[in-house]
């Protein structure tokens, strides 16, 4: 049965159709979910795609965090539903407190738009289930504020609990400990700066993002932590 994915959009989101196309081509059905909606009932997984929610005014994700839909996203996450935030979506998930840390301006203050290599660090998340640790993926980044930051205690916790999901092989933005993606303690909420939907077709130069999106769809049909077969 095709997983049904809700793709949550805010004013200024701009990667929603890319995400929907990539997910649909992997066999999912995907719909837009408006930021003013108060329910995400009926979805098997949620994606918060990239863009500039509310113009990134104040801080990326700072205003989007107060959208009505975020309460529903929080309930969905609390109940174990898979939630993935890509780029701006990662920033929103950090601002709302579903993920630790924050995304600061890139080291060097450059907007970065490039395909980078990231390494899967754990198979135990809704975005990497079935993708062995050590797998290297070529996936584009496209951000000004992708420099993952957290305090030393949080970093120690992330490392001890194996919650660094992806690391940059060649750190492009100054992120602490080369972190490109992290998950929550329950491992069902994942945020990452790279855009897997932009590595979903040979025409785009890489299909490596499909490994992650496919894992998400598989996770959507399986309880958290259960092996995906």
């Amino acid at each position: 049965m095709a997983a049904r994915v809700g793709v949550v959009i805010f004013p200024g989101t701009n990667c929603e159709h890319d995400a929907i196309l990539a997910l649909e081509r992997l066999g999912a059905s995907a719909d837009l979910v408006w930021h003013g909606d108060t329910s995400v009932d009926g979805y098997d997984a949620l994606v918060l795609p990239g863009g500039f929610a509310h113009g990134d005014y104040l801080r990326p994700g700072a205003i989007a965090r107060f959208s009505p839909v975020m309460e529903a996203v929080g309930r969905f996450a609390d109940s174990g539903g898979p939630v993935v935030g890509i780029c701006n979506g990662f920033q929103v998930l950090c601002e709302v407190g579903l993920l630790p840390g924050a995304l600061q301006k890139n080291r060097g203050l450059r907007f970065l738009c490039a395909t980078v290599t990231v390494r899967v660090e754990t198979e135990d998340s809704v975005l990497t289930a079935g993708v062995p640790a050590g797998t290297e993926l070529r996936i584009p980044i496209n951000h000004f504020e992708g420099n993952f930051t957290c305090d030393a205690d949080t970093l120690a916790t992330l490392r001890t609990e194996d919650r660094v999901v992806l690391r940059y092989v060649d750190n492009p933005n100054g992120s602490v400990d080369d972190i490109a993606g992290v998950c929550n303690q329950a491992r069902n909420v994942v945020g990452l700066m790279p855009h897997p939907e932009r590595a979903s077709d040979p025409l785009l130069g890489s299909v490596d993002g499909n490994a992650l999106l496919g894992a998400l769809l598989a996770s959507a049909d399986s309880p958290v932590g259960a092996p995906v077969s």
Binding site: L58, R59, A62, F66, C94, E95, P100, G101, A102, Q104, T149, C150, D151
Partner: peptide, 8 residues
């Protein structure tokens, strides 16, 4: 609650 992100 809004103007500052207490993480950073």
């Amino acid at each position: 609650r809004l103007l500052a992100n207490p993480v950073i």
